[in-house]
């Protein structure tokens, strides 16, 4: 008998209306439909969510960790890209 494992799926849960789906973990399932059902059982059993996305882990294209210096470090010394140099007038809330 072959011991082929079920494919791995990444699970994204939307916790509330208006918020975006957030990666919560992964699981194994034979197909998309059962991946959603398994995600429901594994990741929403304590009312964590109102919507589920699953994506085959194989289909995710990731950045290469060895390229981190050229990808991310150049942004570290560019504080002027943050909108922190404006004076917020009195009376403006939620900023």
């Amino acid at each position: 008998m072959s011991q082929q494992e079920w494919p791995l799926w990444e699970v994204f849960i939307r916790s509330k209306k208006g918020l975006n789906h957030k990666h919560v973990g992964s699981l194994r399932a034979p197909d998309a439909q059962l991946a959603v059902e398994n995600a429901r059982d594994v990741y929403t059993r304590r009312s964590e969510g109102i919507s589920i996305w699953v994506v085959l882990s194989n289909d995710i294209v990731a950045s290469d960790p060895s390229e981190s210096p050229e990808l991310f470090e150049p942004a570290d010394d560019k504080v002027y890209r943050h909108p922190t140099f404006y004076d917020v007038p009195d009376g403006i809330s939620h900023m």
Partner: peptide, 11 residues
């Protein structure tokens, strides 16, 4: 038979 299904059945 697999962790996910173990949780599903006990749920």
């Amino acid at each position: 038979p697999i962790l996910e299904e173990d949780i599903a059945m006990t749920n």
